[in-house]
Design a protein around this nucleic acid. Structure first.
Lengths: 201, 201
DNA sequence: AGCCACATACCGACTGGTTAGTCTGTGGAG
DNA sequence: CTCCACAGACTAACCAGTCGGTATGTGGCT
């Protein structure tokens, strides 16, 4: 029962599909989807095209899987924070800071996420947007809860506040460097502070 | 003296280079740089490849010109607001709101800007980054001025505040729709409010 | 006024290179 | 013997950039 669902020819390393996903993530983040050839991906993963098309239907599927992975992870974490037993300010702060940390820890995913949306087929884009919307709405609900409770100002629509915060999260992949002077947690705290200060009545 | 520097064969419409730039902007924004063929650009502009390569050295040059246009425009506007004769809060607010309006009014430019950086040649990227840094620093100086004067909180480094705000500006091209319920000016006012509230001591 | 020389502004067929995806084949486990 | 998990040569399509050619305008000379 210790063997993975998918076996590989040689016993080394992780299963092939995961290696392909990892190689694709790295390459997509750094050259962009269109500039990365399938050949480069399989070479980086130490396999051949046969293997890739054995597990994935298309190059596009590979990208879609990356989106799925990120969306699942973030949604899970947000739900956990949102449902916690604490005052709204606390829950929003924790959730806001957590996306920042998680995003920084997966910077490759983040740069792919916001740059490669339109390389996805129309239907897959629709699916991603739908999941994204669920996430967005969960976050918005938190803010609206605080506004109704009077702990957050209502002078800015909750929608806009969500976009304001996620703008800065998306932007992280543009400027954050792991060798910079701020740790992920420090950046997260600052950004969460900015959000909460902007929401003070 | 009324004739443009560049003459075109037929007297109709705007000069060819501008038509090419406009067509390229539209197409790059909606299919992405790599997904847009030179053939499509010239067809949209009503000319042929000969014309394009007569005015531009490469497809890449076309993109570079788009970046140049945006950077020049934004830098000019920022400088004007920053040098105005008014208290810092006022100058920052006006500048912050203005980028939002200008960005919304050129949404195509905005989506190209933050999605197509990597398609530029290394040297052109370096140039764009340098101009971008100048812009960034001008903005940061405004915030630092306010922090030193004590009208803005110093609890968040000015750098981070700039990235926070520009994150939301970049993000506009992802969510803003001209047929939405908020006008560009309303969005700009809200985002500027959020920034200024986040900076209150 | 007429004519020549040259420049500018394009046209569009062609080339060399690249790429996603296919398909036939094969080694090893059970 | 069979089937899964992959190998890798092959194909059909596409695309940036080139290049030889053409049309229109312009200035100088006579």
């Amino acid at each position: 029962m210790t063997s993975p669902a998918t076996q590989r020819r040689d016993g080394t390393d992780r299963p092939v599909p995961q290696r392909l996903l990892a190689a694709a993530t790295r390459l997509f983040a750094d050259r962009g989807y269109d500039r990365t050839s399938v050949q480069e991906i399989v070479e980086a993963a130490g396999v051949t095209k046969g293997a890739l098309y054995h597990y994935f239907g298309s190059k596009d599927d590979l990208l879609h899987e990356i989106y799925g992975r990120v969306l699942r992870l973030q949604q899970e974490r947000l739900d956990a924070f949102a449902e916690a037993d604490a005052p709204v300010e606390r829950r929003l702060r924790d959730a806001a800071a957590d996306v920042v940390v998680t995003t920084i820890e997966n910077l490759d995913d983040a740069s792919i996420f916001f740059r490669s949306m339109h390389q996805l087929s129309e239907e897959k884009q629709k699916q991603v947007r739908a999941e994204r919307r669920r996430y967005h709405e969960r976050f918005r609900a938190l803010i609206e809860e605080g506004q109704q409770a009077g702990v957050f100002t209502s002078s800015t629509p909750a929608d806009l506040v969500v976009d304001y915060h996620f703008g800065s999260v998306h932007h992280l992949s543009t400027w954050y460097r792991p060798d910079g002077r701020l740790t992920p947690q420090e950046v997260a705290d600052h950004l969460a502070d900015l959000l909460l200060r902007a929401l003070r009545p």
